[in-house]
Write a protein that binds this DNA or RNA. Structure first.
Lengths: 334, 334
DNA sequence: GCCATTATTGTAAGTGCTTACATTTATTTT
DNA sequence: AAAATAAATGTAAGCACTTACAATAATGGC
């Protein structure tokens, strides 16, 4: 079944069938109905390849992320997928892992599939050294690149960001005003959002004229048990901390487990705040106060922006969304 | 840059370029090298649409699941993606949610994209009533359908399953031999794997000549806090249970939280076993004993089988993989 | 060196769609 | 009712590839 068969059955030309297919208004209602009838009867579906060949586009967006099994990224993928489909676009997902080589390779692969745009999810997708991202800047000349919670300067590159810095600053301020003096800050990576969160932590201390002690800022893999180990070690080494502020809920879970193991009372003796408000945060007892990074809003905004780009609208290249602090039982706020 | 440009630069015909592109052996080494050189110099990549038009295939597999944010499914997606790419196939992901209407719609959408096969992940993807799956059975005439942890009979439909029934039976037997007499069984759905797990629970009791009390089998949404509520209610209603066996780790986390809230000692007073060995299982204190459903093995087997199907090999339509019990601190096995 | 094979290369006809432009038909306007 | 305009439809030329078949070049046997 192809467009010729349909045109023959409906007694029209293939051009008319094509117009019906593409919602072209220059078709009389009578013939449109007749053509649609034939299509339904025969169960005809247009061949995407032929269509892509003619149009040069296939209404498909490439979504890339480092690892779909991270709850945060998994949620983002879910929302992006949903929003894109609502806008009439399909998506191809690629999980690249962390190697730059893979990222590049998969990117090229999607590019060769002629996706209409890219959505790169997570700040870890962007490399720290600018030159390692030049392939993206270069590619953006042909196809728009959207970053969800990632940052990169460039023509035709659009970022939707969460205001991590403010969120962490405010969280730290609440801890400080709640009587915590020695806040340990745990972060997973030096990505854009990672360093931004750290700045928020520093902001809070500096605004109060407090000094930032570098041994209270610790890098830690995004892993529950590793975090528990790290905190146990710091404790045994004699570092005193009465609060743990983290860049990811997984670390906060690790902190809760450390507290259990070392007999520290939460929140009286130790306060804990996580980041992302993911499933992690309600798994523990007590449940974890967490910063909600608004994944859903981030994703809908990204797709809306992208549609703006497609329609030639004047669209901001950078949108920032405020986070929310979700208060649970690992902190004693009023 | 198209095949004509390359052929001109290399001084050969487009047929020869096409042969190089497709690894056709009927090309002399000299000309092959020359053509490849030109391709590299110019950065030429073949147009997928034109290629698809000619070949009728695009080396792309449609992956469908109900919800990518479920940790189990997220892992499956990750492994499937990886294995497919290693075999030279791309994937398009669709998260359909639970509505049958959506499943059908997205399925047709991928079909119209001419994917070379479908991989449907999770037993919840298959409907309970046989007639609701007839669209799949019908479609399988054209394109192979692989089910990961789902079951459906039909020509050209291949299932890779985890032996849930045995796994749950053995887990229950260990609880029974460890002195638990009143094992509560919590399950999330009546899917194929859901009912299979339940059968395992019944098997264990019946093998020992014990009667199955229906109020010890409870349906529960896949939600931590709902599970906690349900157990609290059952407790208050006076139901006595000394172990909770669940069809998903999320429920097991809820059970741990119930135990904390109601002052029940784990594992002395209450044993808990989860399913899937997901991130959930190490978030709590104590950490949860869980049945490892071998997602990775399931996924690699699925892709291997699919490649067998593509190559016309004689491939089993049903493969079953044994699960593993990962012992942690919510049980007191020796 | 000639013919039969075989290896390599080229020609041209699909593949199923889109769309600029041409043509026909319907609707106004005068 | 003719002319002018607008609406609907058709024709045919792409789009970038694959591949059957034809043609040519290389090789080997005598």
């Amino acid at each position: 079944m192809n467009i010729y068969d349909v045109s023959k059955k409906a007694g029209v030309s293939i051009a008319t069938v094509s117009r019906v297919l593409n919602g072209n208004p220059n078709v009389s209602e009578k013939t449109r109905a007749r053509v649609l009838d034939v299509m339904n009867e025969t169960g005809y579906t247009p061949n995407v390849f032929a269509r892509g060949l003619g149009l040069g586009t296939i209404r498909t967006i490439g979504i890339m992320c480092s690892d779909s099994s991270d709850p945060y990224l998994a949620h983002a993928i879910y929302y992006l997928e949903r929003e894109l489909r609502l806008s009439g676009y399909d998506s191809i997902l690629c999980c690249t892992g962390n190697s730059l080589e893979n990222k590049r390779q998969y990117f090229d692969l999607l590019r060769s599939k002629k996706v209409d745009a890219f959505i790169l999810v997570g700040s870890k997708f962007i490399e720290l050294r600018a030159k390692d991202n030049s392939y993206l800047v270069e590619a953006a000349k042909d196809v728009p690149i959207m970053l969800v919670n990632g940052y990169l300067e460039g023509e035709n590159i659009y970022c939707t960001l969460c205001d991590d810095r403010t969120a962490v600053r405010q969280a730290a301020e609440q801890l400080l005003s709640g009587g915590c003096n020695d806040i340990l800050y745990l972060f997973t990576s030096y990505s854009y959002s990672g360093t931004n969160k750290m700045k928020g932590y520093r902001d809070a201390l500096m605004n109060l004229g407090l000094s930032v002690r570098e041994d209270y800022i610790q890098n830690c893999p995004k892993d529950v048990l590793e975090t528990k180990k790290l905190l146990s070690r710091l404790d045994e080494e004699g570092l005193h901390f009465d609060a743990v502020l983290t860049s990811d809920d997984a670390l906060a879970v690790g902190a809760v487990k450390y507290a259990h193991a070392y007999g520290r009372k939460i929140p009286d003796d130790l306060s804990i705040i996580g980041y992302n408000n993911s499933i992690y945060s309600i798994c523990t007892d007590p449940e974890i106060t967490s910063i909600d990074s608004k994944v859903e809003a981030l994703c809908t905004t990204t797709v809306t922006t992208l549609m703006g780009v497609f329609n030639g609208c004047n669209v901001p290249s950078r949108t920032t969304i405020a986070a929310d602090l979700i208060k649970r039982a690992t902190t004693k706020f009023h």
